[in-house]
Design a protein around this nucleic acid. Structure first.
Length: 308
DNA sequence: CGTTTTTGACCAGCGC
DNA sequence: GCGCTGGTCAAAAACG
């Protein structure tokens, strides 16, 4: 059923506005957990994104690639969230009144780069649930102490908003959903995903903005320590520039190559996604390719059919 | 049959 | 201290 739904969404979406409205945003610091700490002060992610945002290479490239004018306010609204939002990312859009322009692609994003030792949430690792049987309590305590001792380093977080009809955007990695929660003040649930690759602890949360249901807020936590699985349906990895696939690169830092992948007309056509293919004529594809000329340079391979 | 999703329950942190 | 909320677990169901 999920697939049907997905297809429906894709289909519907592309018939209605021809994918022109998928937009992704860039990070701003949310300080979800750092409570009052100045993200600029120590946040490596913030820093790097600052570079992006201030017109250094990659950001410009990407921005241009998305067909967005760097100076266009509606294309990339970079928002710095300094307040802690009680509702978490759910407030990214609503509570903070992120400038969402109704009928245009808007996006903002955020990084909460791991405030080193915030007193928050811990780096999980299932210390809860002392397992039914044996000394649940003792293990709990132990875990607690461990928690403190281990200076719960928080994984860097990275949130961005995407205008998309699809909830779970394909990013080349394989994710397993491990939870879903209702978001307060929002009719839309939040889904929790974990990278299925062993020893990769990256997680992501996906939720829809309750103010603008067309906006999907994706929050990554952690960094992939592996490459994009090459065997993924359609071999998405094969369509990405190598620079984005390597751990430690943009992708490795949690930087959304998803961001790129969210532009289905850029990455997902040409044999990777029959759905998209269906809804776009080759001419359209070419036009879009032309529109995102810079990406051509980055991803020449996207012109080749990568079908097995 | 292996993998993923669903979903209710549980736990920890935070605010009052 | 209590209640609320976000995040996670894990059993069962669904799926391929």
């Amino acid at each position: 059923m999920a697939d049907e739904l997905k297809n429906f969404y894709y289909h519907d979406h592309f018939h209605e506005d021809q994918q022109s409205n998928i937009t992704t945003s860039f990070p701003f610091s949310t300080a979800d957990s750092s409570a009052g700490q100045d993200p600029q002060g120590f946040d490596p992610f913030y820093k790097s994104f600052n570079e992006y945002l201030h017109g250094s290479t990659d950001y410009n490239t990407l921005t241009t690639a998305f067909g967005l004018s760097p100076s266009s306010s509606e294309a990339f609204s970079v928002v710095k969230e300094e307040k802690k939002t009680p509702e978490g990312t759910g407030d990214l859009v609503g509570g903070s009144e992120t400038p969402v322009t109704p009928n245009s692609s808007i996006s903002s994003s955020s990084t909460e780069a791991g405030a080193d030792e915030d007193s928050n949430k811990s780096n999980k690792e299932k210390q809860m649930k002392g397992t039914s049987d044996d000394g649940g309590e003792s293990s709990k305590k132990v875990n607690k102490q461990k928690k403190k001792a281990e200076k719960k380093e928080r994984e860097p977080r990275f949130a961005f908003m995407t205008k998309s009809e699809v909830d779970h955007l394909e990013d080349g990695y394989r994710w397993r959903k491990y939870g879903q929660k209702a978001v307060k003040n929002s009719p839309y649930p939040r889904s929790y995903y974990r990278c299925t690759t062993q020893k990769c602890t990256v997680k992501k949360r996906v939720e829809r903005s309750y103010q603008d249901p067309t906006i999907v807020i994706t929050t990554y936590e952690g960094q992939h320590n592996h490459h994009v699985p090459a065997t993924l349906r359609g071999n998405v990895a094969g369509m990405l520039p190598p620079a984005m696939l390597a751990p430690g690169s943009m992708a490795g830092q949690g930087f959304p190559q998803e961001l790129m992948l969210q532009m289905p007309h850029i990455y997902n056509y040409g044999g990777t996604s029959s759905v998209y293919q269906q809804s776009m004529t080759p001419l359209q594809q070419l036009q879009l390719s032309a529109d995102y000329g810079l990406l051509q340079d980055m991803v020449p391979s996207m012109f080749f059919k990568q079908e097995p």
